[in-house]
Structures are given as C-alpha cells and as structure tokens.
Amino acid sequence: MMGLRRSAACSVLVLALTAWLATAFAEVGPRQTLAANLAAGKPTVLIVSRTPTRADLRSEAYADWASYLNDFAEEHRRDFQFVKIKPAELKAIFAEHTPIKEPFATVFFRNAQTAVYYDGMIHDRSTYGAAASFLSGSETVPPGLSPALKSFRFRLPRS
C-alpha cells in the first residue's frame, strides 16, 4: 500500500516538474514577443519576410528594401522593437485574416490598438519617416500621414 502511494506521489511530482520545465523553457515565439511588447506599450515593427531566395539576394528591389529597412532599424533600435516573421506565421499571430498578400511586408504597431502597414517592399525613405512619426507620435493614424501606409485592423488571439 505504502509502495503504491509512494509511486503515485512520484508520478505526480514528475508530471509537475515536466509541466514546470515545459513552461520555463518554452520557446518565446514572435507571437508572444509581439503580445508582450504591445502589452508593455512598446511600439513594435513587425517585419514579414519570406526566407530570401538566391534570386532575391541578387535583385535590386530586394537590395533596396533590405538596405532601407536595416538603416531604419539601426536608427530606431532604441525607440522601437523589431520582430521578424515568415508570411506563413501570420495566421498564428493574428486571430483574423490580415490584408497582407505579399511575401515582404511591414506592420508598424503604435500600441495594442493602432497599427499601420505596407504590403510589399518599402523603397521610399519618406515612408519610413512617416512610420517613425506614427510610431512615436499620435495615438491614431493621422489622415494623410502617408498614402503608402494603410490602417491595419487586427486582433491578437487570446493566449
């Protein structure tokens, strides 16, 4: 009888330990990072990018996109958070379909309620300038901020 009790207690302990370890060492994915950033009020730039192909790495359009985006990140690393995902991960991050159709896109989250997006590769410095103003400035998307940036309606899934 004592042996059975001991064995049951051991099993419970092992299960509890396993659950604790799973929680403690669970990989923090982009979904969790984005949710945590927004909950903490940190403006976040979500970069949607497929793994660049050999052709991408030799294309001028990709070269310009990567260069301006890396410059923007370099300039604003202290102001904004940057999270990168693959297009296939969009479904896991948002509770509803997003308007993003391109393999390269950027969503600028001012907070948990407000965001703007660009579906495609941004090649204009002025668009990044408008995005930076949006992220660090007004609570809502000012009309005419940049015709290139569109309002992004989103809902994060309940964790």
Partner: peptide
C-alpha cells in the same frame, strides 16, 4: 536617397539579410 552602398550588415546588425549583389 542613396548612391554607393556599403556591403553587409550595419554596425548594429541587420534585421533582414542584406543582398549579395547590387549595382549600389
């Protein structure tokens, strides 16, 4: 907006992979 471009990642690191070939 840009003419010559330095190859590789910026000093602080890249958020996306830079291109390997470009006229820039």
């Amino acid at each position: 907006n840009q003419a010559f471009r330095i190859a590789g990642a910026p000093v602080g690191g890249a958020v996306v992979t830079p291109a390997t070939k470009s006229q820039h």
